[in-house]
Design a protein around this nucleic acid. Structure first.
Length: 263
DNA sequence: CGCTTTTGACCAGCGC
DNA sequence: GCGCTGGTCAAAAGCG
């Protein structure tokens, strides 16, 4: 299998050997079992190597996908209107620039807020999913909800609850254009380690997330068609189904305690 | 019982 | 100054 995205080429070798399944029927059952056990172990090793390669290539593709999505950001300007529509000019500016901002003046009645690292992610959800939850691995406590003027869907306000001193806030609202898309705006920087690293990497891409705040129009096209994701899935599926021994190999691997060998 | 969510009230910024 | 709007607070309700 060969997938080419831009100037990067990824190769996944799924060349399992069908002949491994041809059991020498002239042997007595005991020898047969020994021979098959050895074969199974060899296949397990092969599959482990294949899976490792697959994961590495997937990670490379994922990295490349994020790079592509970030490239869109230099040409698009969308979400500042959606999430910071008209009030608080200083915050609008903050969002448009998408960079570190320290407010020069604070409200006389409220403690001065230092808002840094504002970023927005867009999450494609299933039409049946009516919740406003963006699973990013952090723990959030909801402290408010508002219906905004330019969007019928309510905007939910969250604070990071993983660490008491963490001041990171998150706003989640469904897109007015496509209700199946959730927009999550993060303000601030977590001052604690990521609570569950394993939960983050794959789901973000699988859900169709861009870390870029100004790339909705182009990214929405990708979301709607799932073009990039679908391309990858189709390539992988095609590669797998073309290999006649794949199903048998997987079955043999599972029955041979494949996952124990992986660990 | 403690934590989270809900929701109405309050406050501040902005435009007119 | 007034009204509109977004953001936050805090008491009540819900939940495990």
């Amino acid at each position: 299998m060969e997938t080419s995205l831009g100037n990067k080429t990824f190769t996944i070798d799924l060349n399992t050997n069908p002949s491994l399944h041809n059991i020498n029927r002239s042997l007595v059952p005991h020898e047969m079992l020994d021979e098959e056990l050895i074969r199974t172990r060899e296949e397990n090793k092969k599959l482990a190597t294949m899976l490792k390669t697959l994961c590495e290539n997937y990670n490379s593709l994922q990295t490349h996908l994020i790079e592509l999505l970030q490239k869109y950001s230099t040409h698009e300007d969308y979400n500042s209107k959606l999430l910071f529509s008209r009030k608080r000019k200083s915050e609008d500016l903050c969002c448009v620039n998408n960079s570190d901002i320290n407010f020069e003046e604070a409200s006389p009645k409220r403690p001065r807020e230092i808002t840094t690292n504002i970023s927005t992610v867009w999450v494609k959800t299933t039409p049946s999913d009516q919740t406003s939850v963006v699973k990013d691995g952090y723990n959030w406590r909801k402290y408010g909800q508002k219906v905004t003027r330019d969007n019928p869907s309510p905007r939910a306000y969250y604070k990071c609850s993983f660490a008491p001193t963490c001041q990171v806030k998150k706003k989640v609202q469904r897109s007015a254009k496509d209700p199946s898309v959730l927009a999550a705006t993060y303000e601030g920087e977590h001052n604690h380690p990521y609570p569950s690293q394993a939960k983050l990497a794959v789901p973000l891409v699988n859900q169709g997330v861009t870390t870029d705040p100004r790339s909705l129009n182009k990214f929405m096209k990708d979301i709607n068609t799932n073009s990039i994701q679908q391309h990858l899935v189709e390539q992988m599926a095609s590669s797998l189904t073309k290999n006649p021994s794949f199903a048998a190999t997987v079955a043999a691997a599972i029955s041979g305690d494949f996952f124990c060998n992986m660990i």
